[in-house]
Amino acid sequence: MVHVQHLFKHYRNAEHPSVDDLSFTFDEGKIVGLLGPNGAGKTTTISILCGLIREYSGDVNVLGLNLKSNTEELKYKIGVVPQQIALYPELSCQENLMYYGKLYKLSGKVLAEKIDSLLRQFGLHEHANKQIRNFSGGMKRRANIIASLLNDPTLLILDEPTAGVDVQSRSMILSFLRSYNEQGHSIIYTSHLLDEAEALCHEVLIIDKGKKIIQGTPKAIIEGNDTPNLEALFLKLTGNKVRD
């Protein structure tokens, strides 16, 4: 599904490269956790995978498409949930979704039914006409995910989708991700919540300072490193030093 070879990205004026000779492969139909401390290069890697950052070196293939030459085609097949709530706060949830849906060239009954179905699935149906600015943190996160599902993506990429949400919303989001994956969709997600990643992901990739540290199923890498859980393994591999 995703094949990355010798990926390198150094931002102008940055002291160190954000991604430094990173190579990995993710198989289709899995939920993969991209984990790492702050500044590890997770968001940069995701931004490259979804075609947002175009200047990099290395070879990246996503869903069988070479990223450098097929960015537009790829955008039809992926959905990206940014870390920020990428919605217009002054617009209602319905207006936001209608707008993004129309940008995907969806319209009429098809779009209306899709929005209605997703709003019901995420428990936002009754709040469809409420402005996003009046949503709670959890509601905003759910609406943010819905906006990335309008094109029915084969690959869903989520950057910290459960950051700052309550237990109920988090549970709903994780349930949705499992069920979405069961329908045959692939998912890449980043998180700092390692117990969540351990429970959700079929496979994890831990990176630090732009480099690959370890990759494998949670169970295999925890047992292989003789640690009780993913968090302990994470600290063992990336150290206890607080990151900026």
Binding site: L52, E73, V80, Q84, I85, A86, Y88, L103
Partner: peptide, 21 residues
């Protein structure tokens, strides 16, 4: 506001010419 709020990023992730927007 769109750029800082993240909407700009989402718009750029949607296929099609950004010039339409």
């Amino acid at each position: 506001g769109e750029r800082l709020g993240g909407s700009w990023t989402r718009l750029k992730l949607i296929p099609g010419s950004f010039s339409d927007i």
